[in-house]
């Protein structure tokens, strides 16, 4: 193990670190948006679109991101759709993440207890009011654990971007190993880099989860 090798590589890793962070943030925000829209369409059982989105969710959840990326990056140009690696990466991550998020929100809505729905109905609410004032606020709070798990999952999935040569953390480490043959050093930096991103994220999400649980449901 050589410290010199490690310190020399830090500037390169820093750039990769920024890219991983950036791609994760964009991917997570877009995934949450897609997830919310999808789960709302499914909740209100919008005709046709609801079914189409159910097929989307199942396709995205039950296939590997790697194949989704290969399809976007290598197969789509054949039908005239050529996109940069990073655009493919984001689209692939959001395709996958949106489905996971939708599943999480839908699970939260389903977790709202039937007696709460009876209460809302007995107070004269129509379906829209029931959704707006009873199901969604409680459902989103209930889906927080799934949301947290999905955020962590999506950050880790950015490592698969390395297969379409996006210079994020994993790809950078592999490049360096290929060039200088110092696997121990670069792998150590790689693992630490992921820990630097994920440990605070995990702690923050735990904190938020507790806050939401107590905040919305009283102390």
């Amino acid at each position: 193990m050589s410290w010199q090798i490690i310190t020399q590589s830090l500037p390169i890793f820093l750039k990769a670190f920024e890219l991983t962070l950036w791609l994760s943030c964009v991917g997570i925000v877009c995934s949450i948006l897609v997830g919310i829209i999808t789960s709302l369409v499914q909740y209100f059982k919008v005709p046709i679109l609801g079914r189409v989105l159910t097929v989307y969710v199942e396709l995205a959840r039950n296939t590997p991101l790697l194949i989704q990326l290969f399809f976007l990056y290598y197969a789509f140009p054949v039908i005239g759709l050529k996109m940069s690696a990073q655009v493919c990466g984001i689209i692939g991550l959001v395709f996958l993440g949106g489905a996971y998020m939708a599943e999480g929100f839908t699970g939260g809505f389903a977790g709202v207890s039937p007696s709460q729905i009876d209460d809302g109905k007995a107070l004269g609410m129509n379906d829209l009011q029931l959704a707006r004032y009873v199901v969604f606020p409680q459902g989103f709070a209930l889906s927080m654990p799934a949301l947290a798990a999905n955020i962590i999952f999506l950050i880790k999935e950015t490592s698969i971007f390395s297969v379409i040569a996006i210079p994020e953390l994993t790809n950078t480490a592999l490049d360096l190993i290929g060039m200088y043959y110092r696997s121990n050093e670069y792998l150590l930096v790689l693992v630490i880099a992921y820990a630097i991103i994920l440990v605070p994220v995990i702690l923050l999400l735990n904190f938020v989860e507790r806050k939401v649980r107590y905040g919305t449901f009283g102390n």
Binding site: I152, K156, E157, S159, I160, S162, T170, A173, L174, I177, S183, N184, L187, L190, V191, Y194, A195, L198, V199, I202
Partner: peptide
């Protein structure tokens, strides 16, 4: 294992 992506795990074993 929660922190390290699976792809990295695979490389850890493969190289180390």
């Amino acid at each position: 294992f929660r922190i390290v992506p699976t792809i990295v795990l695979l490389y850890l074993v493969y190289y180390i």
